[in-house]
């Protein structure tokens, strides 16, 4: 009896650690997005300060390519939109994972209690 529960406990524990790993992975991805968001916001601010007398270049590989200011602005705006969407996506994903790990923790603790009880019984029998 105790052995079976222990096996189950081990499996569940492995699942749980895997879940924690996924959570931290998503966390760091979200953090990276946050950094990109700030970076792009700074670029947007700079581009907004420019007028048509300024020439904008885009670095593509090692080459600087001339680009229209409006085009650059549109690109950055689109990027910001994308990043914000991604952050939202990760936010819901993380919330979902949080809920799941909460449930999992409960399963784990009840299993642990069961295991302890079974162990106590086994010792009592001997």
């Amino acid at each position: 009896m105790a052995d079976a529960i222990q096996k189950k406990l081990k499996v569940e524990l492995e699942k749980y650690t895997q879940m924690q790993k996924d959570v931290s992975k998503s966390m760091s991805a979200r953090q990276k997005l946050e950094t990109q968001l700030t970076e792009n916001n700074i670029v947007k601010e700079e581009l907004d300060l420019l007028d048509s007398s300024n020439i904008v270049y885009k670095l593509i590989g090692p080459v600087l390519v001339k680009q229209e200011l409006d085009e650059a602005k549109a690109t950055v705006a689109k990027r910001l939109e994308y990043i914000n969407g991604e952050i939202q996506r990760y936010e819901t994903l993380l919330k979902d994972m949080e809920k799941k790990s909460e449930q999992h923790r409960e399963v784990l603790s009840s299993l642990q209690q069961e295991f302890q009880k079974a162990q106590g019984l086994a010792i009592g029998k001997v």
């Binding site: 670029v43 700079e46 581009l47 300024n54 904008v56 885009k58 670095l59 593509i60 600087l64 950055v76």
Partner: peptide
Amino acid sequence: CLVDVGTGYYVEKNVED
């Protein structure tokens, strides 16, 4: 001169700017 404003964008500005 050419100034790096971030994320691969460079802008030609006059010295004062």
